[in-house]
Computed example of a mutant assay.
Amino acid sequence: MRLYLIGTATILILYLVAQYYKPKPTDWTPSYHRDDKIPFGLYILNHEKENIFPGTLVTTSRLAVYNTLKDKNFSNTTYLFIAGELKFDKLDYQELVKFMNKGNNVFIAAFDLGSVLNDTLKLETNNVFNAGDKPERINFVNPLLKSEEGYVFDKGLSNQYFSGIDSSRCTVLGKNSNGDINFVKYTFGKGALYILPNPQLLTNYSLLKPAGADYAAKALSYLPASKELIWDETFTLGKINNDDILSVLYKYDQLRWAYYISIFGLLIFVIYEMKRRQRIIPIILPLQNTSADFVYVVGKVYYQQRDNSDIAQKKINYFLDHIRLTYRLKTIHPDEELISSLILKSEADEETVRQLFNLIHVIGTGIKVTDSQLIELNKLIEKFYNQSK
């Protein structure tokens, strides 16, 4: 057992060392986190926020939109959402509308805007399918921002567009080479809502290229200068109370696999110990039927008391009760009418029935019941049961 534990610990340590020193492959996970340096992280955008939003105080929020804005008097503020998927509920959307009506602005960059936004603004999104993996060309509508050659991005960064949109309610800010809208502005009171359905245009992979950096800077330049910017992290890191130990383990591959190996080793240990130390399962005998013993004991008690009258009276009572329940006959007065009706309904032998009732009459009028009378009574009752229906 000791050698088993030592061997397991040695294998675990060697695996952790090998995982620590092996070259790390490129992580293409779209985290959209401002501290991630992976291709689809937002480290560059976060690092350049002072140049993109000069003089603006940037804060982060991991609370629901409703909790962030409810009963807060924000002014000249921008709310920034960059994520793969947004899940606003109706209360969140109502607070965003109040927030914008006061002159604040909201900028959303996400593939999936959620059912509330899509249904309210009547938006539908789709992806451009390019045969041969040909990049899609996009551009701004504003002549002052429009590039002569347009912006081309690989890996499908700019392929998503609005396939369904009410253009009468919004201002079109950008389109792709097919004329499909991919950047819009909605006006709410004194503020505005900007929606970009391609969040990866703001990630490290895009901003490392001059065209990507230029496009992101121009897209964000639509936001007016503000004194504060709220950078939402609810849809990338989760709500502030959702952190636990397992989330840290699953975040890093080495810790995650070390956790899996530990669990697997623990299961092997439990199975091994269970086989070696399992107690012998006792043999449980089936329950015995003691009815015959009970009858024997009761019969022996009656035999020792030798109270034939009591036994005979009980047998007569049971017999008469059987007649009442089976043939629906009154047995208060065992007269000729009862005997005739019983013979007719039971179809038993008439001689047997008359002998039985004669004996019942003798026992009922007598003082003492002999052994022979009791035996004869029992025989006649059993004979009746066998003959009757």
Rank of each mutant, 00 (worst) to 15 (best):
L57A: 14
R34E: 07
K239E: 15
L285P: 05
A292V: 08
Y161W: 14
D92I: 00
F188P: 00
E85Q: 11
V298E: 14
N46W: 12
N104M: 10
F111Y: 13
K72G: 01
D89S: 05
I6F: 15
K146D: 08
A110P: 02
L287K: 15
L359Y: 13
W231V: 08
L3T: 06
A312G: 08
F40A: 03
L201R: 07
H333N: 10
V270R: 11
Y43K: 11
E149Y: 12
D335H: 01
I261R: 02
L42D: 06
K90Q: 14
E350Q: 09
I240W: 13
N101E: 15
K175R: 13
E351A: 10
Y302N: 12
R256H: 08
M100G: 07
L342T: 03
A9G: 07
D310P: 00
V353M: 06
L145C: 02
K146I: 01
V106Q: 02
K72E: 13
R354V: 03
S158T: 10
N67S: 14
A109M: 06
A18S: 11
G41Q: 06
L380N: 13
D154L: 03
L255K: 06
K330E: 13
Y20C: 00
H322C: 02
T125N: 09
K275H: 10
G156Q: 12
S388T: 03
K155S: 10
K368F: 14
M100L: 04
Q355E: 15
P224H: 07
K70Y: 08
G212D: 05
A348H: 09
D119R: 08
K175L: 12
G212T: 00
Q200L: 03
E149P: 00
T290L: 14
F88V: 00
D349E: 15
R169A: 11
K275N: 09
T68S: 13
G84T: 06
F319N: 10
E148G: 13
Y260T: 05
L157H: 04
K227T: 10
E382S: 12
S309C: 01
S247L: 10
R279T: 03
E382C: 01
I363W: 04
N46E: 04
E48D: 09
K122T: 03
K146L: 07
C170P: 00
D36Q: 07
A64G: 15
Y79N: 08
T78Y: 00
I343T: 08
P286C: 05
P334L: 08
I38M: 05
Q254G: 02
L57T: 15
L285K: 14
L69T: 07
V58E: 03
S262N: 05
V353Q: 12
K70H: 10
P282A: 06
I52W: 06
G7V: 12
K383H: 09
G366V: 01
L86F: 10
N198G: 04
N46S: 09
V301E: 06
D243H: 09
